[in-house]
Design a protein around this nucleic acid. Structure first.
Lengths: 233, 233
DNA sequence: ACATTTGTATGTTTTTAAGCATAATCCATT
DNA sequence: AATGGATTATGCTTAAAAACATACAAATGT
């Protein structure tokens, strides 16, 4: 059995996978039509307007999903971690992608082929209900985010983003360093601000001993304070 | 048969309803546990933190859905028109509401009881897939809106909101007047700006002959121009 | 019919964050 | 090791929108 076989099998068999409770034959159907690919850091996975070929699932690595707005300025709308889905919204809406996706680390991504997936989906109500639940949760997240990004001030937005990154990717072994290494530009695009302001505000947080900076490494020194900054707006 | 019976039956039987293709017995199950209620303009339907009792569906009237943000400032995240669902996100996510809902016109709202609905949903895959599609579309809308609200300037945001209201509620018989009558404050809360700025910018649009104002009545005189303002940001 | 509140309108000031400029630093590649 | 390009850092200026202030009109309740 090849490495990629193992990888795709794991995506389905893992007990946290929404596919884990499928019948063996359904699992086989999905496995037989899955394709996996490796992406280098910075590689484009898909861009706005592309047609989804299936359901993408991140096996290893990290991925950002963003929309291009006014004057090409990008807004990151989601960060994906291993075992997370990529671009499922467009697939299920029957639309082309209206966001773009780029690997921010070397990544392996598997694609569940569309027709097989829908075939399985038609006969598995639990799966459909799981997807409904997943999307409803994501929609709630999106609404919350809209309000934060529009109403909070720069400090609040940046603090929220740092907490979001911590919640998504967790800490390194030191229990302080956020386990993702973004450029200042990406942090800005996540937090709806200019790169200069992201840099400036990060420095301010560092001088206030809320965080510690070392290149792209961000240590959270005082989570309580960061949460207070986030809530204050 | 009572008026309310007729109303709820119509919600299910109407060919555009997602329930129209259900079996007669499933329809009966839903109908037997439905409850309808009348709301006056300004009435609260539910508020953030409330627990959903079922799937709300607007029969007649108009409803706004909004979140409270920094300092109680509200952001309208959705406007509902007849036959539209209200509060389905929280229900399907298995969460309490994280937005509030208020009737902006006298409205009749029916509630499909939760357990019956899920019973029907478990045995109707097409229905589940329809809901997935609906939510995926809504999620796309939310992302687009996030980018508009954060990146566009005031004029662009207001123009977009006016077009959105036109697309949602349509025109009066004159083919110009937007068929919804919101306070300046609601328009502001829809467009992420202060009430003063909504008033000011509406006046500017009127002086530029893009729209015509008469109290809460808004006539779109030059849709092309409005679209251009919206796209420019 | 009157008072009271709520909503609309518009001018002025202040705050916030974007925009722009420049320098230093870090990387990648030759 | 040298070069060029991207990234990070920081100061300064400008633009955008919020905040504030006031006036007036419309709706609501007594």
């Amino acid at each position: 059995m090849s490495d990629l076989d193992l990888i795709s099998r794991h995506l389905i068999e893992d007990k946290r996978s929404i596919f884990s409770s499928l019948s063996e034959s359904d699992k086989e159907l999905l496995l037989n039509t899955i394709t996996c690919a490796a992406y280098k850091k910075g590689d484009l996975i898909y861009k706005e307007g592309d047609k989804p070929a299936g359901l993408l699932c991140l096996s290893t690595g990290k991925v950002k999903i963003f929309k291009e707005g006014v004057g090409g300025r990008e807004q990151i709308i989601r960060m994906v971690k291993p075992n997370g889905f990529i671009g499922y919204r467009a697939l299920f809406a029957g639309e082309n992608y209206n966001a773009s996706s780029v690997a921010i680390e070397d990544s392996i991504i598997c694609c569940f082929e569309k027709d097989s997936l829908f075939k399985v989906l038609k006969n598995n109500n639990t799966l459909a209900l799981d997807i409904i639940k997943k999307m409803a949760t994501e929609l709630g997240f999106s609404h919350t985010r809209t309000v934060s990004l529009t109403q909070k001030h720069i400090r609040g937005r940046l603090a929220e983003s740092l907490i979001f990154l911590k919640d998504t990717y967790g800490f390194e072994d030191d229990n302080q360093t956020i386990k993702v290494y973004l450029s200042r530009e990406d942090i800005a695009n996540l937090s709806n601000m200019t790169t200069s302001n992201a840099i400036r505000t990060l420095s301010t947080f560092a001088s206030e001993k809320v965080i510690e900076l070392d290149g792209r490494k961000i240590k959270i020194l005082d989570l309580k304070k960061l949460e207070r900054i986030s809530e204050l707006g």
